[in-house]
């Protein structure tokens, strides 16, 4: 059997719809985000880590989290890239527009980081440690996309 040999290929489009519950902690986060353009984290009573996204349990101490604290809206870039590779966005089945700036952002007051968009696509202008600020949409509906992106702050 030679590997150059080809056989028929059959196309198939996987197209499914899902409904994800954001959960109790997500509800609190997205309500604050929608109604007050405020970002909230949950603090562990033992290690005092502040988790964003907020969640019911600190995985490290295995303690329930009940204390809420405001974080951001400014933060620091922990890691970043500019995505130039075109690929199909599974959420639409269409190619996602590239390039776009994409960063791991440590919000002020948080111990964990959030993934989000940057407003910059010039690699020479972005660096680790740079300060950024969340830009909120005017009309917010309670999703992570209520943050349009993070804007690089002037030094």
């Amino acid at each position: 059997m030679s590997r150059e040999e080809t056989t028929l290929r059959v196309p198939f489009l996987l197209d499914m719809e899902y409904r994800y519950a954001v959960g109790q902690y997500g509800r609190r986060f997205f309500t604050e985000l929608r109604d007050h353009a405020r970002l909230m984290g949950a603090r562990c009573p033992e290690c005092e880590r502040v988790y964003v996204p907020p969640r019911p349990v600190c995985g490290i101490c295995y303690r329930e989290l009940h204390e809420w604290v405001e974080v951001g809206p400014e933060g620091t870039i922990v890691g970043w890239t500019v995505v130039r590779l075109p690929f199909i966005d599974p959420m639409t089945g269409e190619q996602r527009p590239v390039p776009y700036g994409f960063a791991i952002i440590r919000l002020d007051g948080a111990s964990t980081s959030l993934y989000h968009f940057l407003d910059e696509t010039d690699e020479r202008k972005i660096r680790v440690g740079q300060r950024v600020r969340a830009v909120f949409r005017e009309k917010r509906e309670g999703s992570l996309r209520d943050i349009l992106h993070f804007r690089l702050l002037e030094e």
């Binding site: 196309p11 996987l14 197209d15 499914m16 409904r19 997205f30 599974p90």
Partner: peptide
């Protein structure tokens, strides 16, 4: 509170 999403892959 539900987030609706699609997964669409050829």
């Amino acid at each position: 509170w539900i987030v609706r999403q699609k997964i669409r892959i050829p």
